[in-house]
Amino acid sequence: MTKFHPAPEQLKQFAQGALSPVEAIMISAHCDMCARCQHVVKTETAQQANHVLSDSPSNYTEHIRQDLDSMLASITQLPKARPFRSSRIPPSTIELDGRRFSVPRTLRKFIPTMGNWSGLVGRLWQAPVDIGASGAANFIYMGPGGGVPEHTHRGFEFTLVIDGEFDDGINHYAAGDFIAMDEEHTHTPRSDDPHGCLVFSVLDQPLHFTSGIARLLNPFSHVFFR
C-alpha cells in the first residue's frame, strides 16, 4: 500500500506542466503506480483548465482578430490526422538475477538505455539509465539485508519504490512510495524484505556519506552517481 506521495503542490505543478522534466518524470511514474495521485492530478487538471480558460480576453484589437481569422482558415485546410499506430510494444519489464520486474509506464521509454547491473558494496546492485539530463538516474536493487551506508545529499534525490520494501531509519517504504530528499535529510536505506527491494532513483549531485568507515567512500561516491 502506497503511503508516501508527492506534496500536493508538486502534483498541482505537475498538472500545470510547471515542473522540471526530471521531477515531472518521477511524479508521472509515481502516478502510474498510485490511483490516489492519478485522481488528484485529474482533478487539478480540470480545475486548472477551468481557471486558465475562464479569463475572458481583453485588449482585443482588429489586428489580432484578423490574425485569428486567418489562423482559423488555415487550420481547417489541414487533413484529419492519420491514426497513430505504434509498431511495437516497448519493453515493460527489467530483469535481474532471473527475476522480472514490471516498470511503470513513464519509465519504460528509458529501459532501452539501461546499462548493465553492477554489484556495489552491501548487497547492492545498480543499473544506470540515460534520461538525457545531467545528474544520475539508476535502478537500484537492495538484496535482502542489503543497503546503502548512511548518507546525506548535496542536491536533490527522488526515489520511487518499484518492488518490495525498504527502511531508511526514518520511514518504512513499499511499492509505489515516492521519496524526496535533499541536504536536510540524512538516511540509511536498507531492505529486510526477503525478496529485496527495487527502486528507481535520480540524483543531481553525488551522495555524501556521513558515518563511520563509509566516510572513506566519499572520494568514490561518484560510484553511486553514474
Binding site: G17, P21, V22, A24, I25, S28, C31, D32, M33, A35, Q38, P83, F84, R85, S86, R105, T106, K109, F110, T113, D130, I131, G132, A133, S134
Partner: peptide
C-alpha cells in the same frame, strides 16, 4: 533541455495507444 522526455510520455493526451492506460485502475 537535454532530458529525453516529451510531453506525450508524461501526459498521453493524444496517443491512441496509451490514452487509456493512464485511466485504467491499478
Amino acid at each position: 533541455r537535454k532530458e529525453d522526455i516529451c510531453s506525450d510520455d508524461l501526459w498521453p493526451v493524444l496517443c491512441e495507444q496509451t490514452a487509456d492506460a493512464n485511466e485504467t485502475s491499478l
